[in-house]
Design a protein around this nucleic acid. Structure first.
Lengths: 209, 209
DNA sequence: TCCACCAATCTTGCATACAAGCGATGGAGC
DNA sequence: GCTCCATCGCTTGTATGCAAGATTGGTGGA
């Protein structure tokens, strides 16, 4: 999926300079990459890239759960609330909403248990795996993921951190196992919906001066 | 420590555009930050930032050691060799060389045990903590760190991964404890040596057209 | 009919020019 | 002598212009 600088510049009504800056920020986060004098492309992670992203998440999130000693009751309550909302969205929401809600759990967990730096790392890794899920055929197991999240919270609440870590590892393994890393999907299919929710639509009515 | 765009552009013989791009890459990695219309500065991590970086390293590196099952003998041998070189540098090298060698151990460990993605994350975090060590008064405990590294390798070689993880956590805690996070050092002291090793010196003889 | 080659066009890469804002410095007033 | 304010200079922020390269379409030849 090619992202032309001039095209984006016109769509958003800014000059190429700002588009380039934004693209380079996204490149640093591993969302897009540039091919010299050919253009910017949304990254299409290889199977190895996908495995690497899941592995990194597993290492970091289990390491986080193993190294934590206590969690403030308020944060615990907020997480519990999120999982409940998650359950609602899983039952009634769109694929996009479900993916976001399930990913948000891990980010909120990081916010509750760690610091902004580590949270940002986990946020980027989660974005990567979401990208992977959109590229490869994934069996939609949102309900199972939601149950996993609840189980992890249960273990946390009882202070069984090692068990929570083990559940987390199993959960991430299962999400990864749900992907068919041998068959690539058409990347254009879902991406356009995700990338053009609100920001660009008004701009299309902008007069092309 | 201010890094003026025009100054850097002249030193490196390129335009401000490229300097800005490089600065924004460094900003994404948390090495520098920009103050609006005032300039770029090497980040001076607060005590909280420092603690966050050490915490993140501890979580990730212990998580890594806990989740690994086996290591190829060749990689193990390479790590052992590195620790030996480290010992030599610790005894005879400069502060700069020692800091680099000690940091490299963690990066090589990540290379041996994980994937490029996670290695890059650990590399950036290590750079951050090195930056912290240069900013805050740190008791120079290079020999102790080297011994820690050797002990970690011993545990790994025997397959005692949990013990290796515990040693790693203690090691990182000790490095952090060696810092005086209450007193800030003069940031200019060591940084200039690090940042001007080879690239800029020839450029200084460039005729200021 | 197919393949190779060439040119036109479109793309990013990079430099430069202009605009806007912050800080410092000098002067005036108290 | 001290303080406050205005103005000037230097800095980044942003846009634009030009050059180099890649792709694609067309054309000529086998």
């Amino acid at each position: 999926m090619r992202l032309g600088e001039s095209m984006l510049a016109e769509i958003f009504g800014v000059s190429r300079t700002r588009v380039r800056e934004a693209m380079m920020k996204l490149e640093a986060r591993g969302i897009v990459h540039v091919s010299a004098r050919r253009g910017w492309f949304v990254v299409e992670p290889s199977a190895d890239d996908a495995r690497a992203a899941f592995h990194a998440r597993k290492v970091i999130e289990t390491g986080l759960l193993m190294s934590v000693e206590a969690i403030p009751p308020a944060a615990m309550e907020a997480l519990r609330l999120h999982v409940e909302e998650e359950a609602t969205i899983v039952q009634s929401g769109s694929v996009h909403d479900r993916t976001c809600a399930l990913g948000d759990f891990h980010i909120h967990l990081a916010e509750a248990l760690s610091n902004p730096l580590l949270t940002e790392i986990i946020r980027d890794l989660t974005a990567r795996t979401v990208l992977v899920s959109m590229l490869y055929q994934s069996v939609d197991d949102a309900a199972s993921s939601n149950a996993d999240h609840a189980a992890i919270l249960d273990a946390m609440q009882s202070g069984r951190w090692a068990e929570a870590a083990a559940l987390m590892a199993a959960h991430i393994d299962q999400v990864e196992a749900g992907l068919d890393l041998s068959a690539r999907l058409d990347p254009l299919a879902g991406l356009k919906d995700i990338l053009t929710p609100a920001a660009t639509r008004p701009s299309f009515s902008r007069s092309p001066s």
